[in-house]
């Protein structure tokens, strides 16, 4: 085997391995994500969930199933505020979104603690962040599951999220 050929094979192997990281599914015998207590700022799970295509696509499914879509539409909002812009009332980091999903907010966001598992809240947060193209480009999906004609996340322009990091303490906010 000639050396350029060998080199390209090694390169291919690397590319494939990189792909594995994107698609990694922490399904079995990885108790970390389930049993750990939620850390309000700097939770180590945040990047695991955010930069994983599988978790994000599970989040997309849950976004429909948990009726998030009824209020927030596909990011443009309706009964609830838009999620695809850069304005976040209660902080737009993964931890903030998980907190919001689980505990609700006083102006209408219902709490989902006890209705969703924490893992599902993380998956949802990952998808919510993808609506404004916050996660890594190679993790974003190039096609949405929904039937409307929203722009694929990979084509969205990324705007840094406002008030990031949020006010400490995770109080109920205004």
């Amino acid at each position: 085997m000639s050396s350029p050929c060998r080199a390209s094979l090694i390169l291919l192997a690397f590319i494939l391995l990189a792909g594995c990281d994107r698609e990694k599914r922490g399904m079995t015998h990885e108790p970390k994500p389930e049993t750990m207590a939620f850390v309000p700022s700097g939770d180590p799970r945040a990047s695991d969930y955010e930069n994983n295509a599988f978790q994000m696509s599970q989040g997309q499914r849950l976004f429909m199933w948990m009726n998030c879509v009824g209020c927030h539409a596909h990011g443009g909002g309706g009964m609830g505020p838009p999620l695809m812009d850069d304005k976040w009332r209660y902080g737009g980091r993964m931890e903030d979104i998980v907190y919001t999903i689980l505990n609700g907010r006083p102006n209408g966001m219902p709490p989902f603690k006890g209705r969703l598992t924490e893992q599902q809240a993380w998956q949802l947060a990952s998808y919510v962040r993808s609506l404004s193209a916050q996660p890594r480009q190679d993790v974003l999906y190039s096609r949405s599951d929904e039937m409307s004609i929203t722009e694929p996340a990979t084509l969205k322009e990324r705007n840094a999220i406002m008030n990031e990091p949020p006010a400490p303490g995770h109080g109920p906010g205004k």
């Binding site: 539409a73 596909h74 990011g75 443009g76 909002g77 309706g78 505020p81 838009p82 695809m84 812009d85 929904e146 409307s148 004609i149 929203t150 722009e151």
Partner: peptide, 12 residues
Amino acid sequence: GPLDPGDPSAAL
């Protein structure tokens, strides 16, 4: 709202 016109399905 204000809502985001980037999503045609917003506000149902």
